[in-house]
Design a protein around this nucleic acid. Sequence first.
DNA 1: TTGTACGCGTTATCAA
DNA 2: TTGATAACGCGTACAA
Lengths: 326, 326
Amino acid sequence: MSTIREVAKRAGVAVCTVSRVLNNSAYVAPETKERIEKAMEELNYIPNELARGMFKQKAGIIAILVPNIKHPFFSSLANHIEQYLYEKGYKLMLCSTAGDVEREKAYMRFFESNMVDGVIMAVSNIEKEYYENFNKPIIMLDYFVNDNIPLVVSDHKTGGRLAAQEFINNHCKYVVHLCDEGMVNDVISYQGHLELERILHENNIKTRKVEIKWNTFDFLGFKNLAQTILEYYPEIDGVMCADIPAVAFLNAASSLNKKVPDDLAIVAYDGTYITNMQERKITTIMQQFEKFSKTVVDILIKKINKEPVENINIRIPVIFEKGDTT
Amino acid sequence: MSTIREVAKRAGVAVCTVSRVLNNSAYVAPETKERIEKAMEELNYIPNELARGMFKQKAGIIAILVPNIKHPFFSSLANHIEQYLYEKGYKLMLCSTAGDVEREKAYMRFFESNMVDGVIMAVSNIEKEYYENFNKPIIMLDYFVNDNIPLVVSDHKTGGRLAAQEFINNHCKYVVHLCDEGMVNDVISYQGHLELERILHENNIKTRKVEIKWNTFDFLGFKNLAQTILEYYPEIDGVMCADIPAVAFLNAASSLNKKVPDDLAIVAYDGTYITNMQERKITTIMQQFEKFSKTVVDILIKKINKEPVENINIRIPVIFEKGDTT
DNA sequence: TTGTACGCGTTATCAA
DNA sequence: TTGATAACGCGTACAA
């Protein structure tokens, strides 16, 4: 692990000259430059990013906080964000709460310690004060805090409308929809559910909301839930929920000899690769992960560079994709 | 963003005293301590981890390099690694190559810059020299470099044997297996395929190896491939492959009216949550992600702390899980 | 065109 | 029990 000083000594120049070559920050005589580059080569010199970061007050790292990276939604998101950050010269720190609010708080505290330049919050289960008092660039992905904190989120209201329309087209009479437990108005994705209910009610279609625990990964649990719901409310002929439970409903319907879409119309919400991995293509409200991720990163980097950002409250369009389940 | 100096000034003490309180590194008079803690509170002081890292020559960050975090295999892995690192006080930097060797090289170079303390290589597509000359603690997850570089990997040889046994029990005559293209002997997972072939041949069962491009995510592509294979080689009555193509084979068999497992026995390899998400439970050779991850992290941290490590060439057992597809 | 000196925020050593 | 000082590695005024 050689330092800039050793390089300077070997090349017979002062450290600052090496630094200049390194950063192209000033003119250096060609022969001097060559000598320095040779020395760097020989010593296998690699700049200490920690020291650089300390000087520049910038680590070159952006953190993302998710509930769980295993979930296809968050791994898709993280995937695109990392890709784009790489292009922009940033690294990604991956942090997960695993549903533990204490962990969320601990990470939030760590984020203020100069090790990261900005934070992407794909989860938000603690009090608003934590976000309000956070003094670093931050972007929320599904939670409205106040008008100063950027919020980038899919246009769930339209998503809810598109789903409702599809149920209407399918002549459904009773639609169940699953949403995360503890959803409040400031959670934007909840607006999709509200819009779904509103429009269905306008069309005299009954609805039932079922709350499920965040981030569940227990597919069999979902399948049991689906089965229970379908057995307990046999009149149900439509369901909207996230990709994974949608698959569970598809399976449960098959077990119960319910025909899809005739007896049960299914609309999956999110559009991760899961929805393609079935024998039948599931009708889906798709979020645009790539566009979403780029928008998030662009805004965050602008914030980090203290550049002005026109719009900090953004809705990314969703895309309706017709499948065989409606 | 207040510094330790400001805290010291506010509390009317020297910086080193504040540092002592911060790290509990020496005795400080109770009243002094209280004064300092009050000052820290008032200024909302948070230590600068960048500066700390610079002094300690340690960033508290471990990097993982994967081909793609979207893939359930790598997201499962990253999930468990992050969980365990959190317990150990480390953060995780998530880096992906997206199949680009230049990106792998670029990241490898960055890793040597003091911003990370160690590296977990879940991908390895560049020349051995890069790993041999890498001067930081590193762990390979599927690639043998030399006897000095730790290697933690599932016991794929046993995995291949278990799969072979299952095909034998199913009286298969012709088994196809899919593996990544460009697999060489030093790629440990390839040994599973070799063992599978060896045992099947011993039992007079024909085999066919099909190479697929790394990390493909195109499920429809897999499905077409599966269908093509099954149509082109109608005698095939067994298949071993990763979880996702296994699902594709399950679907393709259904499309072709082949009965599973009578006409086609399917063994999935890996055991991510994907294998549970089907109507039929797929027979699976499961990797133990949690155990695997803990082992990796434990060894890496020991290496970082320059503690001796008894065994740096480890095989984590795989688990055979019988499903409905054999 | 190149070099000197200082600061970034910590911690550890030594001294008092 | 506490304080002054050096050091970690780099980048930038400022000076030469």
